[in-house]
Write a protein that binds this DNA or RNA. Structure first.
Lengths: 185, 185
DNA sequence: ACCTGAACACCGTTCAAGT
DNA sequence: ACCTGAACACCGTTCAAGT
C-alpha cells in the first residue's frame, strides 16, 4: 500500500477503472485504456501494478475477502438456506471475472501467494457453512469445500453459453443437487 | 474451400499451425506466429481466415464433427458405458480449446451459423447415446442433451484449476452423477 | 516518493504490387 | 486465383526526466 495520499488515491482509482474495463472487454482489456479511464499516465499504472496479472490478482483478492465476510455473516439462520444463499453470491462474483489467464491460475495454486491465502480464507469460511449443512443432513457428508466450490464455478461457467443463462444455472444446480443418475442403479 | 492445389494445401497447413499455437499459448496466440509456423505470409492467413474468429470456428467445427462421428460409432455396446466413454472423449476435446472469446460464443448461439449446425449435429449424436442410457434406466429421464453437455463442459473447466485435474474431474463427475444432496432431504 | 509520456518491440489488419 | 510483405494504428512494457 502506498503512503502518499495522492498515490493511495491513484491506487484505488486504478482498481475501479480496471474492474470496469475487465467487465466490459474481458480479462485482456487494454491497460492503456485502464490508465485513461483512471486519468493517470500509463507509467503510473505500471508503478502500482507491474503487470496485468497484478491488477487481476488485486481484484480477485477483493472478491475473495468480500465473500469470506459474507459467509461469516450468514453463519446464523437455517444451514441449508445459508449455504445456498452464499453459493448464489459466489456465482455472481464468478461471473464478473471470466477467462482468467494461466498466470493467475498458477498464482492461485501457489501456496505461498497472497492470492492463495485469500482464496483459502474464503474456502474456510464457505467450508463452515458447508459443515453446518452437512451436519443437518442437507448435503452428502463426503463433499469437501474445494469440490463444492469447483462444482458451482463450473456450472456458472457452463451456464454462460446458454441463451438464458440464469435459467440454465438454476437447472444445472438442481440436477447437480439431485444427481444425474436416477437413484436406483 | 479453395480450388487451386497450393491454396488448398495452405488452408490445411494453416489450420494445423493454428491448432498447435492455440494449444500452446491459448486462444489469443499471435496470428503472425501462426503464419510463421505455417510458412506462409501473414496476408495469406488473412486471405483464408479473415479474422481470428474464423480460425477458431474452423477448428471447433472439426472437433464437433469428429465427436459426432465417434458418438455414431459408439451406438452399439452397453448404453451406460457408451455414454460415459463418449463424455470422456468430449472432456478431452473440451480441454484443447479453452477460453473461447465472446465472438465465438455468439456464433455458437446464432442458429444460422455453420458452427451452430455442427454443434447441433454433435448434440443430436450425443443425444442418441443419452436416450439409450435413459431407456435403460441409467440416467434420469428429464435430462436434455444440452444440459448434459453443459454440465460436463463445466466440470472439465472447473477441474483445470485443481492441482490434480484428472482426479478432480473423476470425482466431480461422480458427485454430479450421484447428487450433492444425500437423498433423504 | 511518486508521476509522466516518449520510446521500443510487437501485434492485428489492410492493401497495392506481384506471379 | 492466389501470395507477399510493407504500412498503419494500436498495444504492453520500460525508463529517463521531471515535481
Amino acid at each position: 500500500m502506498p503512503v502518499r495520499s495522492d498515490a493511495r488515491r491513484n491506487h484505488q482509482v486504478l482498481l475501479d477503472a480496471a474492474r470496469e474495463a475487465f467487465a466490459e472487454h474481458g480479462t485482456d482489456a487494454s491497460l492503456r485504456d485502464v490508465a485513461r479511464r483512471a486519468g493517470v499516465g500509463i507509467g503510473t499504472l505500471y508503478r502500482h501494478f507491474p503487470a496485468r496479472e497484478a491488477l487481476l490478482e488485486a481484484l480477485l483478492r477483493d472478491d475473495f475477502d468480500r465473500l469470506a465476510e459474507r459467509a461469516a455473516a450468514l453463519a446464523d439462520g437455517d444451514p441449508r438456506e445459508a449455504l445456498l444463499t452464499w453459493l448464489r453470491e459466489l456465482a455472481v462474483g464468478q461471473r464478473t471475472i471470466r477467462g482468467l489467464p494461466e498466470s493467475v491460475m498458477e498464482a492461485l495454486r501457489d501456496e505461498e501467494s497472497q492470492l492463495h491465502a485469500s482464496c483459502q480464507a474464503m474456502r474456510d469460511a464457505g467450508g463452515r457453512l458447508l459443515a453446518r449443512a452437512q451436519k443437518e443432513g442437507a448435503v452428502r457428508g463426503d463433499l469437501t469445500a474445494n469440490e463444492l466450490l469447483a462444482l458451482v464455478a463450473g456450472l456458472v461457467w457452463a451456464s454462460e453459453y446458454a441463451p438464458d443463462s440464469g435459467a440454465r444455472l438454476d437447472r444445472l444446480l438442481r440436477v447437480a443437487m439431485e444427481g444425474v443418475g436416477n437413484g436406483h442403479e
